[in-house]
Simulated assay, not measured.
Amino acid sequence: MIVRIISLGLFLFVSLPSFVAHAQDAAAQPWIRPDHAADEAVWGIENGIVFSLWPYGLEHRNERPYGGGPRGLIRVGYQNGEETYLMNFLAIEPIVSGKIEFSEISPSAVDGVWGKLLWASDTPEAGSYYPTARARGVVSQVGGAGEAVEELSVYVFMERFAHGAAPYLKLSIRSDRPEELCIQVFHHEGSTPMDRCAITATMGNYSRLRNLHLKGSVVTSTQLYNGFDGIDFIEKDGYPMSQMLEDTGGYLWALATGDETMDDLADWPVDSLARTKMGWKYRAPFKFTQYWKKEKKTADPSLSVRVNGRARYWSGGSRDKSHYMRIPGGPSFENFELQEKYIPGQRFYYGLSRKTPSELVD
């Protein structure tokens, strides 16, 4: 099969590898992954976490292949039965000499449009950008002897950033942790040294996340940002590693939840502005706890929790306040991440769980 690919401004014709279909194995496995190189760039696990790369979205399976929203972001959602629900975007934000770049607004070297091109591979060799899946993902056995635990892994590559940073990621899902995505951060040879490379969940306003669960306290966005009604982000100081929750298994946690009932969350105003913002209306049939966690033994002392907030939904960069709809219920957390000095191969875990924070952290 031949498809057109883009390699930093050059159009090339490359023969895509053939995927061998294993229908019998697929029936026995929980994995969601492409059957062919030209399929949608979507991977995940049944009744658990799913992710995709632009231009492929996660919702409306029968109406795809496109609908993936902004470029330069990893879409993350939750598969339940026959439906998949988009829940958040993950952005890549490398910092070099104190200067940060954002994968979703850093211009592409191919066409100058906002958003770095992202593509997948089964190996750590980057290759070139492909507009389709190209990679099935590698399924391997993990855990101790006798444990029937599998892991699906996919490498995600991106264009080099303007300040020279050249990070890439390895995303993995374990069959015994279906609600969790492991994210490892690496860099290519020749990359400008990075101070850190944050992986940030950028769309907390969709779930109206207002409670940040830390050690001995719950920080609420409505109190933290009380009185704020602007159209930009608002940010306070972060929270050091010492304020993160710790479980008996040696992991540090920060968890975010909403503060509304399911009925309130699913409700939506009927005014003319709200009708133009229907993409922000909550569509999943249940609520989630979103979390970040880190193995304490591998954590650098620089590890911290960062959130920022918004009082009004993003509206495409317009500076006209009338274009921005107030978030029902008040300000909520938009970006949610762990920050840590860059260490090659460092691991962060992002979760979308139907469990409560107290059920997750023992």
Results as ranks from 00 to 15, higher is better:
A41H: 02
A27P: 01
A27M: 13
N47P: 01
H22K: 10
Q29A: 13
P17Q: 06
A27K: 14
I45M: 03
I45V: 15
D25L: 11
A37P: 03
A38V: 13
D25G: 06
D39N: 08
A23H: 15
H22G: 08
A28S: 09
P34M: 09
W43I: 04
N47M: 07
D35R: 07
W43K: 00
A21H: 06
D39P: 01
R33T: 07
A27H: 02
A38F: 14
A37G: 04
A37H: 00
Q24E: 12
I32P: 03
S18E: 13
P17V: 06
D39F: 01
P30Y: 04
Q29R: 09
P34N: 10
E40I: 10
A27R: 09
D39W: 04
V20K: 04
A27I: 11
S18W: 08
P34K: 03
P34R: 04
A38H: 15
I45F: 01
A41T: 01
I45T: 07
A26E: 10
A41N: 00
A41G: 03
A41E: 03
G44Y: 09
E40Q: 14
P34W: 09
W31V: 05
N47S: 12
A38G: 14
H22E: 12
W43C: 11
W31F: 09
R33A: 12
A28G: 02
F19P: 00
P34T: 07
Q24N: 12
G44H: 08
A27Q: 14
P17I: 07
P17D: 06
V42D: 01
A26Q: 01
A28P: 00
A37D: 03
A37L: 04
I45K: 04
F19I: 06
W31T: 08
A23M: 07
Q24R: 13
A21R: 05
A38N: 10
Q24Y: 12
S18T: 13
D25S: 13
H36I: 12
A27N: 07
H22C: 12
N47V: 06
H22M: 08
A23Y: 10
N47E: 14
P17K: 03
A26R: 05
Q29F: 07
H22Y: 09
S18V: 15
Q24A: 11
P17C: 04
A37N: 01
Q29E: 12
W31I: 07
H22A: 15
F19H: 09
G44E: 14
V42T: 03
P17T: 08
A21S: 08
A27G: 08
A38Y: 15
I32E: 02
F19L: 01
H22W: 14
A21L: 07
H22N: 15
P17F: 05
P34F: 09
I45S: 01
R33I: 02
D39E: 08
D25N: 11
Q29H: 07
F19W: 06
V42C: 01
E40M: 09
A23K: 13
P34Q: 06
G44T: 15
E46M: 02
D39C: 03
A26N: 08
A21W: 06
R33W: 01
V20H: 05
A37R: 01
A23C: 05
H36Q: 14
Q29C: 04
W31S: 03
A26D: 15
V20N: 04
A28T: 12
H22P: 03
V20D: 08
